[in-house]
Design a protein around this nucleic acid. Structure first.
Lengths: 237, 237
DNA sequence: AACCATGTGTGATATGTATCACATCTAATG
DNA sequence: CATTAGATGTGATACATATCACACATGGTT
């Protein structure tokens, strides 16, 4: 779990990049249930989320959904279209919660990134960390079986969206349906339901109003033989 | 499958980056069966492969291996340690075939990358593509089941290591054991063996001296409902 | 309060996949 | 060419997971 200091450090990161993004072209309202963009669409802009929540996912041809991350205020989306040939969005951006995004022209951002070494540095750092996170995440999802996949997802969600409560429990501050979790870890809502209920029985976690609270994170870590990798790596996104 | 033109374009990519790497500090011989580096080791250098083959993989705590890519001449490894805080290798680099690598000091490369916009641009482009490849690859591995995972892996290997033969078949120019393939797609060697034999029966592929030749790539693509994503994305690495 | 849509919970069953235990096969080596 | 180590091939079985079908809970609406 993130300590107060770590959270502080995390916020200090990429300050120049975020500063640049704030000088955006215009602001756009986003409404729950709509898509900000969908995979395959030509990508000329990227977005800084000002408020609201957006789920980034990718569909398989047969209708199954792989969920990558849930983004909220301060996060950049559409970033992987930068510096690509025929830029198309690779993911779907589905709005989970009303809000606003700042719209940034891709061309402008690319130009600025190359002109300013500090920006370049921050962006490369972000990309490297992204790639590193992805490697450990997918190793877990693929090698640990579905139960391990769920446990690993819960652990990462604690690090990405968790709030430490007074009793030491961690509230994952996102309303998550069984189906959402299933989409994150490549299983079915029924399996997720059974596994969550088993964990509830054991007192490992509890659920109120669609939000999960983890009471015994160490249990989950033991079960997946967690190697306690650095906090910037062991995250959902 | 890559056309001649595409292959040519691919080779032209990242020329400045590779040029820089050739001005390396020194050359090091690598011997089959040894590790150039292992995950967790402090990372102060990265490498350009001059000859030989290196398999990049990550272990899970219970001894299972997730294989990410097999690199040969012209490829850079250890690159994801650039611009990270406490740089440690994230993967194991196991030598599959004797050869030589050029050793580049991490500090020097970081400095050069930031100083030269062309280099910066190439490296960012490479990182973006890497992230995009990873997203589609793991979606396939996680959502398609083990058979789909194997088929997807074979398709990507055609694009990464394939040589088109006169009769239109594609030779995957790597000696691959059943266990290697299993490590790539998160299954067991027995399962891989059964699936490969079924494909042999159907005439979809054949194997000589440990190298697989795909006779009917379209069959594999149909089975995984391949969406024919761009060649720089549908690859193993 | 009755209704409806959406989500959750759960048994029965089918399918997919791993595991175990061997029997070959093959290539390298003395 | 005999031996051996490593790789492949295959049945039997156990286990994990998905699928199906439906009951139940919940919250919002008329």
């Amino acid at each position: 779990m993130m300590t107060a200091l770590q959270a502080f450090e995390e916020k200090k990161r990429f300050v120049h990049l975020k500063e640049l993004l704030r000088s955006a072209n215009h602001i756009q309202k986003i409404k729950k249930g709509t898509f900000l963009f969908q995979e395959g669409m030509a990508a000329n802009e990227l977005y800084l989320i000002l408020s609201g929540k957006i789920q980034m996912s990718k569909m398989s041809q047969d209708g199954k959904e792989m969920c990558f991350r849930i983004c909220s205020a301060g996060e950049i989306i559409g970033e992987l279209t930068l510096f690509t040939n025929e830029p198309k969005y690779l993911l779907n951006a589905k709005v989970m919660e009303d809000g606003e995004v700042a719209v940034i022209k891709k061309d402008y951002l690319e130009e600025q990134l190359l002109l300013n070494p500090t920006l370049t540095f921050e962006y490369m750092q972000w990309l490297s960390n992204h790639a590193r996170r992805t490697q450990t995440k997918f190793r877990d999802l693929i090698l640990l079986g579905k139960k391990g996949a769920l446990y690993s997802t819960l652990i990462r969600m604690c690090n990405s969206y968790g709030i430490r409560l007074k009793d030491g429990s961690i509230l994952i501050d996102l309303p998550l349906k069984n189906q959402d979790l299933a989409n994150f870890c490549g299983t079915t809502r029924e399996s997720v339901n059974r596994m969550l209920n088993a964990l509830k029985q054991e007192g490992i976690l509890s659920i109120h109003k669609g939000k999960i609270t983890i009471h015994d994170l160490d249990y989950l870590k033991r079960e997946v033989q967690c190697e306690n990798c650095p906090i910037e790596i062991c995250r959902i996104e």
